[in-house]
């Protein structure tokens, strides 16, 4: 029977990807296809390969074996095309400690182009950091850093959002706000890959699930 996804305009097409760190295989023969607008919940124990898979999809790291295409662009050939359409919310927040919240966002906006500048105040307001916009990130709590990292992700208006433990470090109000943001992304047609240990919350937000165990797909 032919693969129904074959030939379709896939958002994510991962073919037999493996990633090795030293002697350890963090990912082993993982394949995955997502259509535009799909939302995938990525689950697994610590060290199961969730973060590695998200980094491979974002082109932060290159796979040791296998092929990755995002919106038709090959990760080996055209990383920049992928990076323009993808945003990663990671454990590392990519923030400069000595810049203010607003300066961090304006830096990214300058790299993205003039249109993004106008969004900065709106996004600071959206993540509840408007009053602290001029404060250095160094003064922020872990939860505030996470909110700013979310604003950074939204500024990119990604077509594929990769969210690694998006609820971590957030208080209950922050978690509720994050759920709202993820729903808005879905409604806007953004393809989502969400890695979390909070399976119930994740399942409420995603239509598909992929469980990783020791770098391999254990359940799909």
């Amino acid at each position: 029977m032919p693969d129904p996804l074959e030939g379709a305009g896939l958002a994510v097409d991962v073919q037999d990807v493996s990633k090795r760190y030293g002697r350890r295989w963090a990912l082993a023969h993982v394949s995955l296809q997502l259509r535009p607008g799909d939302s995938l919940l990525l689950t697994g124990h610590n060290g199961s390969g969730k973060t590695t898979l998200l980094k491979v999809l974002s082109t932060t790291i290159a796979p040791s074996l296998g092929a990755v295409k995002v919106f038709g662009s090959d990760a080996k050939v055209d990383r920049e095309a992928i990076r323009r359409r993808v945003a990663l919310l990671s454990h590392a927040n990519y923030l400069y400690e000595d810049l203010s919240a607003e300066q961090n966002l304006r830096l990214l906006a300058r790299l993205l182009g003039d249109d993004a500048q106008a969004q900065v105040p709106t996004l600071l307001d959206k993540v509840g950091l408007k009053a602290r916009a001029a404060h250095a990130v160094r003064e922020f709590s872990a939860g505030m850093r996470k909110r700013l990292a979310v604003a950074r992700l939204l500024l990119k208006r990604p077509q594929l959002a990769l969210l690694d433990e998006p609820f971590g470090e957030l208080d209950p109000a922050g978690i509720a706000q994050m759920e709202g943001i993820i729903r808005d992304l879905k409604t806007g047609g953004t393809t989502l890959v969400l890695a979390t240990h909070l399976v119930e919350q994740g399942q409420a937000l995603c239509s598909r699930r992929l469980h990783l165990s020791e770098g391999r797909v254990a359940q799909q």
């Binding site: 920049e80 990519y94 400690e97 790299l111």
Partner: peptide, 18 residues
């Protein structure tokens, strides 16, 4: 060092900055 802190250099790469 300021680029290593919070993996800010990865943030620039993914922005994407050439």
């Amino acid at each position: 060092r300021i680029e290593s802190e919070n993996s800010a250099l990865d943030g620039l790469r993914l922005a994407p900055a050439d």
